[in-house]
Protein backbone atom coordinates (compact mmCIF):
# COMPACT_ATOMS: atom_id res chain seq x y z
CA UNK A 1 0.00 0.00 0.00
CA UNK A 2 1.44 3.31 -1.02
CA UNK A 3 0.54 5.75 1.72
CA UNK A 4 -1.09 3.98 4.59
CA UNK A 5 0.39 6.52 6.97
CA UNK A 6 -1.26 9.55 5.41
CA UNK A 7 -3.65 11.39 7.72
CA UNK A 8 -6.57 10.47 5.49
CA UNK A 9 -6.48 6.79 6.36
CA UNK A 10 -7.89 5.58 9.61
CA UNK A 11 -5.04 4.78 11.95
CA UNK A 12 -6.93 3.44 14.95
CA UNK A 13 -9.71 0.94 15.19
CA UNK A 14 -12.39 1.86 17.69
CA UNK A 15 -13.54 -1.11 19.68
CA UNK A 16 -10.25 -2.86 20.02
CA UNK A 17 -7.60 -4.63 17.98
CA UNK A 18 -8.37 -5.46 14.37
CA UNK A 19 -8.31 -9.17 13.94
CA UNK A 20 -7.41 -10.22 10.39
CA UNK A 21 -10.07 -12.92 10.56
CA UNK A 22 -12.90 -10.46 11.35
CA UNK A 23 -15.05 -9.34 8.46
CA UNK A 24 -14.33 -5.82 7.22
CA UNK A 25 -18.02 -5.10 6.86
CA UNK A 26 -21.01 -6.69 8.58
CA UNK A 27 -24.47 -5.99 7.26
CA UNK A 28 -26.87 -6.86 10.06
CA UNK A 29 -30.61 -7.28 9.52
CA UNK A 30 -30.80 -4.23 7.30
CA UNK A 31 -34.23 -2.88 6.36
CA UNK A 32 -35.09 0.17 4.32
CA UNK A 33 -38.52 1.61 3.68
CA UNK A 34 -38.48 4.65 1.43
CA UNK A 35 -40.79 7.58 1.95
CA UNK A 36 -43.90 6.56 0.06
CA UNK A 37 -43.78 3.04 1.45
CA UNK A 38 -41.44 1.20 -0.94
CA UNK A 39 -39.81 -1.66 0.98
CA UNK A 40 -36.41 -1.78 -0.68
CA UNK A 41 -34.73 -4.05 1.87
CA UNK A 42 -36.25 -6.43 4.37
CA UNK A 43 -33.76 -8.01 6.73
CA UNK A 44 -30.55 -8.24 4.74
CA UNK A 45 -27.61 -9.85 6.53
CA UNK A 46 -24.17 -10.77 5.21
CA UNK A 47 -20.46 -10.37 5.99
CA UNK A 48 -17.75 -8.99 3.74
CA UNK A 49 -14.39 -10.66 4.41
CA UNK A 50 -11.39 -8.38 4.58
CA UNK A 51 -9.19 -8.06 1.54
CA UNK A 52 -11.65 -9.86 -0.73
CA UNK A 53 -13.89 -8.90 -3.58
CA UNK A 54 -17.55 -9.51 -2.86
CA UNK A 55 -20.16 -9.10 -5.58
CA UNK A 56 -23.81 -8.35 -4.96
CA UNK A 57 -26.03 -9.71 -7.68
CA UNK A 58 -29.79 -9.86 -8.06
CA UNK A 59 -32.74 -8.81 -10.18
CA UNK A 60 -33.32 -5.16 -10.98
CA UNK A 61 -34.92 -3.26 -8.12
CA UNK A 62 -33.97 -5.78 -5.43
CA UNK A 63 -32.09 -3.15 -3.44
CA UNK A 64 -28.44 -3.58 -4.44
CA UNK A 65 -27.81 0.13 -4.84
CA UNK A 66 -29.74 0.85 -1.65
CA UNK A 67 -27.57 -1.62 0.27
CA UNK A 68 -24.39 -0.14 -1.14
CA UNK A 69 -25.45 3.41 -0.32
CA UNK A 70 -26.30 2.47 3.25
CA UNK A 71 -22.85 0.90 3.58
CA UNK A 72 -21.38 4.10 2.13
CA UNK A 73 -23.28 6.17 4.70
CA UNK A 74 -25.11 8.06 1.97
CA UNK A 75 -28.50 6.65 3.01
CA UNK A 76 -29.88 5.87 6.47
CA UNK A 77 -31.26 2.44 7.19
CA UNK A 78 -34.79 2.17 8.55
CA UNK A 79 -33.62 -0.56 10.89
CA UNK A 80 -30.63 -2.82 11.34
CA UNK A 81 -27.10 -1.59 10.82
CA UNK A 82 -23.83 -1.78 8.97
CA UNK A 83 -20.64 -2.25 10.95
CA UNK A 84 -17.23 -1.44 9.61
CA UNK A 85 -14.47 -3.01 11.66
CA UNK A 86 -17.00 -3.30 14.44
CA UNK A 87 -18.16 0.33 14.35
CA UNK A 88 -21.69 1.18 13.16
CA UNK A 89 -21.85 3.38 10.08
CA UNK A 90 -23.65 6.69 10.48
CA UNK A 91 -22.12 8.75 7.69
CA UNK A 92 -19.55 8.59 4.89
CA UNK A 93 -16.01 8.16 6.13
CA UNK A 94 -12.44 8.06 4.88
CA UNK A 95 -12.42 4.27 5.22
CA UNK A 96 -14.78 3.96 2.23
CA UNK A 97 -14.67 5.21 -1.35
CA UNK A 98 -17.48 4.97 -3.89
CA UNK A 99 -17.28 4.34 -7.64
CA UNK A 100 -20.43 5.54 -9.35
CA UNK A 101 -22.28 3.87 -12.18
CA UNK A 102 -22.59 7.19 -14.04
CA UNK A 103 -18.99 8.10 -13.12
CA UNK A 104 -19.98 11.33 -11.29
CA UNK A 105 -17.14 13.32 -12.83
CA UNK A 106 -17.17 17.09 -12.73
CA UNK A 107 -17.44 18.28 -16.34
CA UNK A 108 -15.59 21.51 -15.57
CA UNK A 109 -12.50 19.80 -14.16
CA UNK A 110 -9.64 18.00 -15.89
CA UNK A 111 -8.98 14.30 -15.47
CA UNK A 112 -6.22 15.08 -12.99
CA UNK A 113 -8.36 17.38 -10.88
CA UNK A 114 -11.24 14.91 -10.94
CA UNK A 115 -8.93 12.13 -9.83
CA UNK A 116 -7.57 14.36 -7.07
CA UNK A 117 -10.98 15.62 -5.95
CA UNK A 118 -11.46 13.12 -3.13
CA UNK A 119 -8.14 14.26 -1.69
CA UNK A 120 -9.04 17.91 -2.35
CA UNK A 121 -12.22 17.52 -0.29
CA UNK A 122 -10.18 15.96 2.47
CA UNK A 123 -7.91 18.97 2.59
CA UNK A 124 -4.74 17.44 1.15
CA UNK A 125 -2.43 20.21 -0.18
CA UNK A 126 -2.41 20.67 -3.94
CA UNK A 127 1.09 19.42 -4.75
CA UNK A 128 0.68 16.31 -2.70
CA UNK A 129 -2.79 15.42 -3.98
CA UNK A 130 -1.80 16.00 -7.59
CA UNK A 131 1.20 13.76 -7.21
CA UNK A 132 -0.98 11.00 -5.76
CA UNK A 133 -3.67 11.50 -8.39
CA UNK A 134 -1.08 11.42 -11.15
CA UNK A 135 0.16 8.09 -9.89
CA UNK A 136 -3.33 6.55 -10.00
CA UNK A 137 -4.26 8.14 -13.30
CA UNK A 138 -1.16 6.37 -14.65
CA UNK A 139 -2.19 3.10 -13.00
CA UNK A 140 -5.54 3.14 -14.76
CA UNK A 141 -3.74 3.90 -18.02
CA UNK A 142 -4.76 7.52 -18.59
CA UNK A 143 -1.43 9.34 -18.23
CA UNK A 144 -1.79 10.93 -21.66
CA UNK A 145 -5.19 12.36 -20.71
CA UNK A 146 -4.36 14.13 -17.45
CA UNK A 147 -5.36 17.49 -18.89
CA UNK A 148 -8.37 16.28 -20.87
CA UNK A 149 -11.92 17.01 -19.77
CA UNK A 150 -14.49 14.26 -19.16
CA UNK A 151 -16.52 15.10 -22.27
CA UNK A 152 -13.46 14.36 -24.37
CA UNK A 153 -13.22 10.80 -23.03
CA UNK A 154 -15.10 7.61 -23.83
CA UNK A 155 -17.34 5.98 -21.23
CA UNK A 156 -14.69 3.43 -20.38
CA UNK A 157 -12.06 6.09 -19.87
CA UNK A 158 -14.40 8.13 -17.70
CA UNK A 159 -14.96 5.19 -15.42
CA UNK A 160 -11.19 4.76 -15.14
CA UNK A 161 -11.05 8.32 -13.83
CA UNK A 162 -13.77 7.44 -11.31
CA UNK A 163 -11.72 4.43 -10.26
CA UNK A 164 -8.52 6.49 -9.98
CA UNK A 165 -10.35 9.00 -7.79
CA UNK A 166 -11.58 6.25 -5.47
CA UNK A 167 -8.16 4.58 -5.29
CA UNK A 168 -6.35 7.87 -4.69
CA UNK A 169 -7.99 8.45 -1.30
CA UNK A 170 -6.57 5.13 -0.20
CA UNK A 171 -9.73 3.95 1.50
CA UNK A 172 -9.73 0.46 2.88
CA UNK A 173 -13.10 -0.38 1.35
CA UNK A 174 -14.07 0.23 -2.25
CA UNK A 175 -17.78 0.37 -3.08
CA UNK A 176 -18.60 -0.04 -6.77
CA UNK A 177 -22.12 0.27 -8.12
CA UNK A 178 -22.26 -1.40 -11.53
CA UNK A 179 -19.07 0.36 -12.54
CA UNK A 180 -18.93 -1.27 -15.96
CA UNK A 181 -22.62 -1.14 -16.82
CA UNK A 182 -22.23 1.66 -19.35
CA UNK A 183 -19.14 0.21 -20.99
CA UNK A 184 -19.24 -2.10 -24.01
CA UNK A 185 -18.41 -5.76 -23.73
CA UNK A 186 -14.82 -5.84 -25.06
CA UNK A 187 -13.77 -2.96 -22.87
CA UNK A 188 -15.61 -4.51 -19.98
CA UNK A 189 -13.46 -7.63 -20.10
CA UNK A 190 -10.30 -5.60 -20.26
CA UNK A 191 -11.62 -3.64 -17.34
CA UNK A 192 -12.24 -6.73 -15.26
CA UNK A 193 -8.64 -7.78 -15.84
CA UNK A 194 -7.36 -4.33 -14.91
CA UNK A 195 -9.50 -4.27 -11.80
CA UNK A 196 -8.17 -7.61 -10.63
CA UNK A 197 -4.60 -6.55 -11.34
CA UNK A 198 -5.04 -3.24 -9.50
CA UNK A 199 -6.65 -4.94 -6.54
CA UNK A 200 -3.88 -7.50 -6.29
CA UNK A 201 -1.51 -4.54 -5.86
CA UNK A 202 -3.71 -2.53 -3.53
CA UNK A 203 -5.05 -4.86 -0.84
CA UNK A 204 -8.61 -3.53 -0.70
CA UNK A 205 -11.89 -4.90 0.45
CA UNK A 206 -14.24 -4.46 -2.49
CA UNK A 207 -18.02 -4.57 -2.71
CA UNK A 208 -19.05 -4.79 -6.30
CA UNK A 209 -22.63 -4.55 -7.55
CA UNK A 210 -23.26 -6.10 -10.94
CA UNK A 211 -26.00 -7.40 -13.17
CA UNK A 212 -23.75 -9.83 -14.94
CA UNK A 213 -23.46 -13.34 -13.52
CA UNK A 214 -20.36 -13.99 -15.64
CA UNK A 215 -18.71 -10.87 -14.32
CA UNK A 216 -19.57 -11.75 -10.73
CA UNK A 217 -18.18 -15.28 -11.03
CA UNK A 218 -15.10 -14.05 -12.85
CA UNK A 219 -14.01 -11.35 -10.43
CA UNK A 220 -15.41 -12.39 -7.04
CA UNK A 221 -14.13 -14.23 -4.06
CA UNK A 222 -17.66 -14.19 -2.68
CA UNK A 223 -21.06 -13.53 -4.25
CA UNK A 224 -24.11 -12.31 -2.36
CA UNK A 225 -27.27 -13.22 -4.25
CA UNK A 226 -30.25 -11.02 -3.44
CA UNK A 227 -33.91 -11.62 -4.20
CA UNK A 228 -36.82 -9.34 -4.73
CA UNK A 229 -40.08 -8.85 -2.90
CA UNK A 230 -39.32 -8.69 0.00
CA UNK A 231 -35.65 -8.03 -0.65
CA UNK A 232 -33.42 -10.42 1.22
CA UNK A 233 -30.22 -12.34 0.75
CA UNK A 234 -31.03 -15.68 -0.79
CA UNK A 235 -27.54 -17.14 -0.79
CA UNK A 236 -23.90 -16.32 -0.30
CA UNK A 237 -21.50 -18.40 -2.41
CA UNK A 238 -17.74 -18.53 -2.86
CA UNK A 239 -16.86 -19.59 -6.38
CA UNK A 240 -13.13 -19.03 -5.89
CA UNK A 241 -12.21 -19.22 -9.56
CA UNK A 242 -8.52 -19.89 -10.03
CA UNK A 243 -7.04 -16.91 -11.89
CA UNK A 244 -3.66 -18.38 -12.62
CA UNK A 245 -4.54 -19.75 -16.06
CA UNK A 246 -5.40 -16.54 -17.93
CA UNK A 247 -8.71 -15.10 -18.94
CA UNK A 248 -9.61 -17.30 -21.91
CA UNK A 249 -8.74 -20.42 -20.00
CA UNK A 250 -10.88 -19.44 -17.02
CA UNK A 251 -13.91 -18.55 -19.07
CA UNK A 252 -13.87 -22.03 -20.62
CA UNK A 253 -13.08 -23.92 -17.42
CA UNK A 254 -15.80 -26.29 -16.14
CA UNK A 255 -15.64 -24.79 -12.64
CA UNK A 256 -16.35 -21.29 -13.95
CA UNK A 257 -19.17 -22.43 -16.24
CA UNK A 258 -20.63 -24.53 -13.48
CA UNK A 259 -20.78 -21.56 -11.11
CA UNK A 260 -22.39 -19.37 -13.74
CA UNK A 261 -25.04 -22.03 -14.25
CA UNK A 262 -25.70 -22.50 -10.53
CA UNK A 263 -26.16 -18.80 -9.90
CA UNK A 264 -28.31 -18.50 -12.98
CA UNK A 265 -30.54 -21.30 -11.63
CA UNK A 266 -30.69 -19.60 -8.24
CA UNK A 267 -31.77 -16.29 -9.75
CA UNK A 268 -34.15 -17.76 -12.30
CA UNK A 269 -36.64 -18.81 -9.67
CA UNK A 270 -37.05 -15.18 -8.70
CA UNK A 271 -36.99 -13.72 -12.16
CA UNK A 272 -40.09 -15.64 -13.11
CA UNK A 273 -42.22 -14.24 -10.31
Amino acid sequence: MTNRTSPTSEPTVPGGVRNPGDPAVRVVDLAKVFAGGVRALDGVTFDIPRGELTSIIGPSGCGKTTTLKIIAGLLDATSGQVEINGTPVTRPGPDRAFVFQDFALMPWATVLRNAAFGLELRGVPRKEREATAREYVAKVGLSRFEDAYPHQLSGGMRQRVGLARALAVDAEILLMDEPFASVDEQIRRKFQEDLLRLLSEEDKTVIFVTHSIEEAVYVSDQIVIMTRGPSQVSKVVRPGVDHSGGSGHIRRSPAYLDWVERIWAELQGYLET
Binding site: L74, P92, M106, P107, F117, L121, V169
Partner: peptide, 24 residues
Protein backbone atom coordinates in the same frame (compact mmCIF):
# COMPACT_ATOMS: atom_id res chain seq x y z
CA UNK B 1 -24.65 11.63 -8.17
CA UNK B 2 -22.23 14.58 -8.19
CA UNK B 3 -23.69 15.55 -4.83
CA UNK B 4 -23.42 11.99 -3.56
CA UNK B 5 -19.86 11.90 -4.82
CA UNK B 6 -19.05 15.02 -2.79
CA UNK B 7 -20.78 13.63 0.29
CA UNK B 8 -19.03 10.28 -0.03
CA UNK B 9 -15.68 12.09 0.21
CA UNK B 10 -16.85 13.93 3.31
CA UNK B 11 -17.71 17.36 1.89
CA UNK B 12 -19.62 19.66 4.22
CA UNK B 13 -22.79 21.36 2.98
CA UNK B 14 -20.93 24.59 2.37
CA UNK B 15 -18.12 22.92 0.43
CA UNK B 16 -20.63 20.89 -1.59
CA UNK B 17 -22.29 24.09 -2.47
CA UNK B 18 -19.31 26.18 -3.47
CA UNK B 19 -17.29 23.47 -5.22
CA UNK B 20 -20.05 21.44 -6.85
CA UNK B 21 -23.56 22.91 -6.93
CA UNK B 22 -22.64 26.45 -7.98
CA UNK B 23 -20.28 25.28 -10.71
CA UNK B 24 -22.68 22.63 -11.96
Amino acid sequence: SLIEMGRSFGASRRVLFTRIVLLA
